[in-house]
Design a protein around this nucleic acid. Structure first.
Length: 853
RNA sequence: GGGCGAUUAGCUCAGUGGUAGAGCACCUCGUUCACACCGAGGGGGUCACUGGUUCGAACCCAGUAUCGCCCA
């Protein structure tokens, strides 16, 4: 069985076994919106798991006669690639540098990123292209080895020219319809990556902090008002104090003003229901901007914007105007340009020295928002960003998107809850711009006014026919390059789109939207979106949004969600825990069929344990399929599909085919409801009975011990059963099934038709149960020998089998085969009567070991 | 704090109203005759807990506990 991958993977490629037939009509096509793996990462065992689930479905649909459109894609766009390229080559992008065509990256990347080489944007993009191309080769060879039945001629990547064109085209249409807009607004900002991030990329992390109790003096005089804050560093950005409108303690203060300690800025005391009387002292300072609640207060209470934290996560270097003439100007000058961390320290020390802070800081842990890929808390800075409407600020759109979710078929069904909760909880539109370099540029330029300031509310856009465009490299339509950046001229939008803004278009990228209308008409909307459950809120939702906005419909009719892979301690497998096994090593050690067996044994949506034991079982199953097939074919089974069901005359043979008919029915029904694990389970269960009981029973007869008729019955049964079994196993064990198929059938098993009950001939209902009963007799006779501690090949003298009438009668119909298999001289059948209501006795046997000789 | 899911043999998991299952691991036996990457046989479980519905509950309902994930 070793070596099957090397033989068959290239053979399938050469024969075009998995080629999509693009002459097929939509109704005969099954199209799959494959998740494009991030090539900047590495494939891990979780990918193998979920991609196997998809492949099993693809193979089933193909055998059912569908023309399967199953492309692969690579997500090579965006920040993850930038990070990998930076670390791999030891470079950092500085867009202000000129392009140097002779640049070669350092031999070895420096350890510390401070020593990274600064390169131009064009060089940086070239390095991104180079590394992703190499990575994609590695990924493809792994997928081929795993046996994914992908049509590689349709492979796409999210940074390719046509993907950039598609992303820009879709954006321009969103813009034209008013679904995309840009806005200067407080934005969640990662200071490490210096980019805005979207709501979907946030995560809360429990973080150490401390409450600082700080007094504000009323302007009108009186006792100081104490607030408790975890971020005293924002004191210079304070614009108001806020308490709950019903809070009796602070009611007298509403409408009055207080002075901020240290800085002496006069700010109002205001009321807002979001202020929590239970939290801290019940009154809080509003700063621009400490958290998203500050943003809400700032917006709803129409407060001024006094930002002090810059995009680099440091305090603004220039002393802000509202502090310049106050008592805190000197203090501010001492913290200008400092990091938030050290500035906070300085402010606290100053507060303690001045006596404005009461007591020691009270240590707490509280949830703080982080970018999921970042390791510093997010700041909120006011910037101009592009947004796409996603229902976060629009009840009507939101309910339309919930309705789309309801139209989608979910496997498993309960995953829909995650979609509903996410959509219902959105609190803003989708922020799609990123201040990065390797991504799809916004296809937008701005006119510059007489002062050289961009006019944002009237962007210049290109003609769709000219896409993709790079506004940083091409002049705006109607302008020449020498007008770039000069008053009265133009400027490019500096941003790129977030990765999700492109990957939300995968059904369009791959289907040839506006590029290949013929293909598009045959595959879109697609049939299946397989993906991980972790990206329902991002990939699945954003794809639904884009399709809804562009076409007013779903991009696919159903989605299949795979679960996690857990390590043996029931934790999610992750690199940081050092428990990730490389997929290639896994495939080499156990064989592709074995690893696929492990993956396919798990149902959709169910987390699975990484379990090499399960792979060993899969390997044993594949091996057994090869060995049993070799033996069965050695009985003289004819090549091809000529076996005649009419030759099946023995009851035990008719019985095994009747059982197999049930298996075909159950496996087909399971596949139809996307329950591949049950399809595998019923097939495997039958196969072991087939080998252990049926094959053992008919060995002697097939060799002709009882003459030609009974032998022909065994051979025909073997041929029919094996042809059926190989096709049932083909989606799961494509290598072993193909290998055996090639021994005696024409073409590929993966192009053969899925078995139908009718292929098995008329089911002989009267023979039902004969094999099961005979199997029970085999077991009890084997037990006699096992307990006597003799070989199973030891002959028995006269045996007596007792049991319920029905079982005994059924087994007796296979007496000749039973005698041969058990080496018994004779069997006496004894029916045990069962009184009404009594439990039927188990089958039992008595027999003497025949004397040696 | 809210939501979703899980909890069955030492391990990994099936089992959705009618006598508790499979594989692995373990114990015993058996190898020229498809398969030692094997075959046969065997031992092993208060189905997390507490109530309820029912003639009958691993399964349905309510609650509790523990674990995982998502959201706030």
């Amino acid at each position: 069985m070793d070596g099957l991958e090397e033989r068959w993977a290239p053979a399938w490629q050469d024969a075009g076994t998995y080629a999509f037939d693009r002459s097929a009509q939509r109704a005969d096509v099954y199209s799959i919106d494959t998740p494009p793996p991030t090539v900047s990462g590495s494939l891990h065992v979780g990918h193998v798991f979920s991609y196997t689930h998809t492949d099993v479905v693809a193979r089933f649909q193909r055998m059912r006669g569908k023309s399967v459109f199953y492309p692969m894609g690579w997500d090579d766009n965006g920040l993850p690639t930038e990070r990998r390229v930076q670390n791999y080559y030891g470079v950092r992008c500085d867009p202000s540098l000129p392009y140097d065509p002779s640049f070669t990256p350092p031999e070895k990347a420096p350890k510390n990123d401070r020593d990274f080489v600064q390169v131009s944007r064009r060089t940086f993009v070239e390095l991104c292209d180079r590394l992703t191309a190499e990575d994609e080769q590695v990924f493809e060879s792994l997928w081929r080895r795993l046996g994914l039945s992908v049509d590689w001629s349709h492979t796409y990547s999210t940074i390719s020219e046509s993907s950039r064109a598609t992303a820009q085209r879709a954006f321009l249409r969103n813009l034209a319809r008013g679904e995309a807009y840009s806005q200067q607004a407080p934005t969640l900002w990662d200071t490490t990556f210096r980019t805005a991030v979207a709501q979907a990329e946030l995560e809360d992390r429990e973080t150490e902090g401390a409450y600082h109790r700080i007094g504000f003096t009323p302007t009108a005089g009186g006792e100081p008002v104490f607030i408790e804050t975890t971020r005293p560093v924002l004191l210079p950005a304070c614009v108001a104090l806020v308490a709950h409108p019903d809070d009796e303690r602070y009611r007298p203060l509403f409408g009055q003003t207080v002075r901020t300690p240290l800085f002496g800025v006069e700010v109002p005391v205001v009321a807002h229901p979001l202020a929590d009387p239970e939290k801290g002292s019940g009154i809080a300072m509003i700063c621009t901007f400490g958290d998203t609640t500050d943003v809400t207060w700032w917006r709803e209470l129409q407060l001024p914007n006094r930002t002090v934290i810059g995009r680099d996560g440091r305090l603004l270097r220039e002393t802000p105007q509202w502090l310049a003439d106050g008592p805190g100007a000197e203090l501010y000058a001492s913290i200008a340009g400092a990091t938030v961390f050290s500035a906070q320290k300085a402010v606290v020390e100053a507060l303690q020295a001045s006596g404005d802070m009461v007591g020691e800081p009270k240590r707490i842990t509280h949830p703080v928002k982080f970018y999921e890929k970042g390791d510093r808390p997010l700041e909120i800075v006011s910037t101009r960003q592009w947004y796409l409407r996603n229902g976060g600020r629009d009840v009507e759109l939101r309910s339309a998107l919930l309705e789309r979710g309801a139209e989608l078929a979910w496997h498993p069904e309960h995953m829909k809850h995650r979609y509903d909760h996410w959509v219902s909880g959105l609190n803003g539109d989708w922020l799609i711009s990123r201040q990065r370099f390797f991504g799809v540029p916004f296809p937008v330029w701005y006119r510059l006014d007489a002062d050289g300031e961009p006019v944002h509310d009237d962007p210049i856009v290109p003609d769709e026919a000219s896409l993709p465009v790079d506004p940083a490299a091409e002049p705006a339509p109607g302008f020449s390059e020498d007008q770039r950046g000069v008053p009265g001229g133009f400027a490019a939008d500096p941003d790129v789109m977030d990765t999700w803004a492109t990957s939300s278009l995968t059904p369009l990228l791959v289907s040839g939207w506006e590029r290949d209308p013929d293909l598009f008409s045959r595959v879109y909307p697609m049939d299946l979106r397989p993906q991980g459950q972790d990206i329902i809120r991002t990939w699945l939702f954003s794809t639904v949004v884009r399709a809804h906005l562009e076409f007013g419909g779903l991009p696919w009719s159903r989605t299949a969600l795979s679960g996690w892979i857990l390590d043996p301690d029931r934790k999610k497998m992750s690199k940081s825990k050092g428990n990730v096994v490389t997929p290639l090593a896994l495939l080499e050690e156990h064989g592709s069929d074995a690893v696929r067996y492990w993956a396919a044994s798990s149902r959709l949506g169910t987390d699975a344990t990484f379990d090499t034991g399960q792979m060993k079982i899969g390997r044993r199953l594949a091996m057994k399929l090869l060995n049993a097939s070799k033996f069965v074919l050695g009985l003289g089974v004819e090549r091809g599909d000529a076996a005649d069901p009419a030759a099946v005359t023995e009851a035990v043979d008719a019985s095994v085919l009747a059982d197999l008919a049930d298996v075909v029915r159950q496996a087909t029904e399971a596949f139809e409801r996307y329950d591949h694990a049950t399809a595998l389970d019923v097939t495997e269960r039958f196969f072991w009975t087939f080998c252990d009981d049926w094959v053992e029973l008919v060995k002697d007869r097939a060799y002709g011990v009882r003459g030609e008729g009974p032998a022909a019955s065994a051979r025909a049964t073997a041929a029919i059963a094996l042809r059926t079994l190989l096709r049932l196993f083909a989606p799961f064990l494509p290598y072993a099934a193909e290998e055996v198929w090639s021994w005696w059938q024409d073409g590929s098993v993966h192009r053969a038709s899925w078995p139908a009950v009718e292929d098995l001939g008329p089911v002989d209902e009267g023979a039902r149960g004969v094999l099961a009963a005979a199997g029970q007799v085999l077991t009890v006779l084997r037990k006699v020998k096992s307990e006597a501690k003799v070989s199973q090949k030891t002959p028995l003298s006269a045996a007596t089998v007792s049991g319920p009438a029905a079982v005994v009668a059924a087994a007796a119909r296979a007496e000749a085969d039973l005698l041969a298999t058990s080496r018994a001289a004779s069997i006496t059948w004894r029916e045990v009567a069962v009184a009404g209501g009594e439990q039927a006795p188990a089958l039992s046997a008595q027999a003497e070991i025949a004397p040696a000789g």
